[in-house]
Design a protein around this nucleic acid. Structure first.
Lengths: 245, 245
DNA sequence: CGGTGCATTGATCAGAATCAATGATCGTGG
DNA sequence: CCACGATCATTGATTCTGATCAATGCACCG
């Protein structure tokens, strides 16, 4: 294998960094929370920890779905493409989030690391065997799927019926909520993704996202901080902005 | 209870028409396909058949989710509202489709009959008890949830990145595909829903939907038939139109 | 210090929304 | 049986939000 091919293979596969599961920092906020210690060790046995640098592809739309993942740190974007390159980001994943619910034969989307990512990879076949063994896990997965569906419906409402400002504010509030749920502050929140990513998530252009940030800044609804952070100033009024009240 | 109140209650609840399950025409294309005869009779024991006239509400967004449903005939629309009345239809259900995957505490959307609908109602608690008993059923449900998620992601791509024409054509093709999967012809297909419903599903206005139909008719891509039917003329070229090729 | 990539700002354009009117279909009651 | 009203679909004229095209600003890194 030539050096460049090796590089490409590494880029695709990420770097294997072992398989510890005992001291996992996100255990309690992931699907693993459903498992007791002995069950967890069974999970650990099939898991493999990997890390990806920003912009590396984790899975490709259309490829056979042979693995499932738990994000342990960093941010991941999921997207679908149209033939001419138009892109729709269908979701962002952060630590504790599960990737690969859509257990269809092929991945329905591409998953790409936004920044440096570590994750836990489970081979699909062995994961499904564990599902048979641990009904609790299957129940948990159904719960996750159910939540993702509800989230997807919210996103449809956003994409189909909200204005640019409502979209951006809704996005910030949802990130804030998820940040809070992970034990991080609800404000300020970090925005590891680019303006282009935000645009492709909200069905806008980068220019419109940027202008909307500027306008929100002007009305003191948010403050842009160093290090891609945003402070949300008043949750109540932001919530009203998000729904067009 | 006053007469009007009774009417309202009936409007909400639909008409109870018994609970047969043996001769169910959609058994093979619903979640019930996962069950053998004895299991099916357990399902039948908790099921209750109801019928709804068009425009009747089946479940209300925000209400406690105490039932799950299988549509046995007719069409149902699911939608979410913004405070000012903007509406996003998140999906249409037809015979064989399952309603209520989002097993969260409250319904995430309103479900309303498009035309006359009959369905099978399962009380949530008893349904969940059956899930414990029949892992096959839970597996099937996870499968359905997985498919719905994939569909939701396609819809996000549509809402966020497709043009009006691409949206309408994608919609027609997806109805055609589902019609075919139910054993009905792929063309012509029936459109039981109004232009306003289609618009609220595609993130457009009724006017734009109507103009797009007219334009597609003009380019001989479709034909509008009597009885709210549409003939799709050339699947290959329509598929290209749907993705902007 | 210069270059590269990303964000912001500005000017103009276009696709779909909005506003408005007409047409078709259907159910109802005279 | 037909006329009427109601509802929905279509068509037209105009507006507007967000896209596109274009330039500048900013930060990070070699």
């Amino acid at each position: 294998m030539a050096a460049s091919e090796l590089q490409i293979a590494q880029k695709r596969q990420g770097v294997d960094v072992g398989s510890p599961c005992a001291a996992c920092s996100i255990r309690e906020m992931s699907i693993c929370a459903a498992l007791d210690n002995s069950e967890l060790s069974r999970m650990a046995a099939i898991a493999r920890t990997q890390s990806f640098a920003g912009r590396q592809t984790i899975v490709d739309e259309g490829e056979p779905a042979d693995s499932l993942f738990n994000i342990t740190s960093g941010a991941v974007k999921l997207y679908k493409l149209l033939p001419d390159g138009r892109r729709q980001i269908t979701g962002f994943l952060f630590e504790g989030d599960f990737l690969g619910i859509a257990l269809n034969d092929d991945y329905a989307y591409t998953a790409e690391a936004v920044n440096d990512v570590t994750l836990c990879r489970f081979p699909k076949a062995r994961f499904e065997a564990l599902l048979e063994e641990f009904p609790k896990l299957e129940k948990q997965l159904l719960e996750v799927a159910s939540n993702e569906l509800a989230q997807a419906q919210d996103q449809m409402l956003l994409l189909g019926r909200k204005t640019a400002q409502e979209k951006v504010v809704s996005f910030l509030l949802s990130l804030s909520k998820r940040s809070h749920a992970r034990g991080a502050p609800a404000s300020p929140i970090s925005l590891p993704m680019s303006r282009a990513d935000i645009a492709d998530y909200l069905g806008l252009t980068t220019e419109t996202v940027s202008r909307t940030f500027t306008s929100l800044k002007g009305s003191d609804a948010i403050r842009l901080l160093a290090g891609n952070s945003v402070a949300l100033e008043n949750f109540e009024s932001l919530s009203e902005l998000a729904d067009g009240i």
